[in-house]
Design a protein around this nucleic acid. Sequence first.
RNA 1: CGGGGCGUAGCGCAGCCUGGUAGCGCACCUGCCUUGGGCGCAGGGGGUCGCGUGUUCGAAUCACGCCGCCCCGACCA
Length: 565
Amino acid sequence: MRWSQLFIPTLREVPAEAEVPSHQLLLRAGYVRQLSAGLYNYLFLAQRSMNKIIGIVRQEMDAIGAQEMYLPGLNPAEVWQESGRWDLMGANMFRLKDRWQRDYCLGMTHEEIMTFIARGELRSYKQLPQLWYQIQTKFRDEPRPKSGLLRVRQFIMKDSYSFDVDAAGLDTSYQKHYDAYCRIFDRCGLKYSIVEAHSGAMGGSQSHEFMVASDAGEDLIVIGRNYAANLEKAVSRPVPPAVPDPEGDLQPEQFHTPGQKSIEDVSAFDGMPPSSHIKSLVLVADDKPVLALLRGDHQLSETKFTSVAGVSEFRPAHPGEIADWMGAEAGSLGPVGMKMRIIADITLEGRRNMVAGANKTDYHLRNVTPGEDFQAEFADIRQVTAGDTDITTGEPLQLVKAMEIGHIFKLGYKYSESMGLRVQDEKGKDITPIMGSYGIGMERILCAAIELYHDDDGMMMPASIAPFDVVITPVNMKDAALREAAESLYAECKRAGLDPLLDDRDERPGVKFKDSDLIGIPFRITLGKKLAEGNVEVYVRRTKEKFDIALADAAAKVKALVTPS
RNA sequence: CGGGGCGUAGCGCAGCCUGGUAGCGCACCUGCCUUGGGCGCAGGGGGUCGCGUGUUCGAAUCACGCCGCCCCGACCA
């Protein structure tokens, strides 16, 4: 296509509201414009990239035998009420009423609708497995849209769903998606990690997230040489206590700690490192008090605690509740003598003679031994921290920020059960199919590519998802020889199967170079003085490498560079 | 929902404190010039100063209310 006729509104300056690189560049390069918080207009370039991304996703989904459908984004309340998610989704779901005052919502995801289709039509185990997918706009009333296209209120998702006779079938469907996702993200040129994820209240047995490490991400993942997990689920070997525990069968002994509230305070006061202290958190879990215990230098993992405690939600106790139950203020709390439920992190098991609050304001106890001076349920409720090591190999682990681009998980029977999906097995008996659910955030692929590949001059898009493969840049449109050579090269690129952009604007070369660097076209063929010798220059955006080549060979050369060998 | 910041031309900003004709750079239009990294010269167009109410002879500027956007936290199948 011809640049002179296209709408590519590039900006020289960064709009003030953009913070993360992908957001800044999407605006500067004229890919998108904001309509409202979390709502973006995808202009020509973004739409072209999105179409290429969607094309790759569609090919790979089709390749595993998934069947594409297209479901309504506008959903009646009833279907969501059946699964229970009408209430569960809370304010995150956009809701509206029709003219008869009937309730509707805008779909956040489509488990319910897919299950609705399945239960209406599937009758026999012979029809299974089924893999269904769609590429559809999703709506979520995010409490805080942010970071450009990374967290928005309307976005395009590829979501697929599997229906299988049994768990073994689900394993197969799950693995197919796992492999397809790898091919998709590989083809999109992304560097990603696959992490074990928490499957949450979905009751799923297995879940993986596909994550791209980036400071723009909002999740934390733990990565080692042979380990990767979401922080919510990650396990590790903690750094050993800073000093060994005092030996002997010592009795708890109260000591005065006036005004010393935090572990750090008390630690500085009594000379024992935080790792020799017991951190006591008073929590209210499903309306009942629970005391959670951790090593002084550790943090509670809310996700682990929730599942260990077997509760749906919890919160820190209010000061009044703490005073009522413990008889002391926060800062002097401990497990000794407490009757409430106590859950202690496993790193406390086997420790001896530690320091804990005395449940008497401004007093602590030394020589507290877990399991002797108090009883507790021991479980892993600790969050991995920087410096921890791999639980099996002892190799270092890293905590990095990452963005989620894909998520697969085994749903189990949640929807098929609650919504009454049944088929007959070979004996004529009713069975409930087991489901899986698999999502990819389309614009996050675009964002991830930009976050991963950009420099001060702009984007460096992978060729597979760049809006164009190559830009042809005659340095002077007033020069008839350059113009004609550019035209014929443009035609030849098209014949070679490339997606070329002809920069036929009557602009100075500097403007054209800056713009094409900004919008991230992977290759540029520059036509200038060297054309007199029959040569043009090929410029590789990613490396800034340049080389001369005969005009006649340029198209074939770029074609070879674009197509991975 | 809690905390913070911002709202003046398409973009980036100044002006506000101390009320008195709305400015700068970029972008845009016209002409000349230039043509391998956002070139130069000359001329020009474009603004309900987020909205409302109040104070005042007079409000972009002061007060109050509202709205919008961004950031931090909470939240995020």
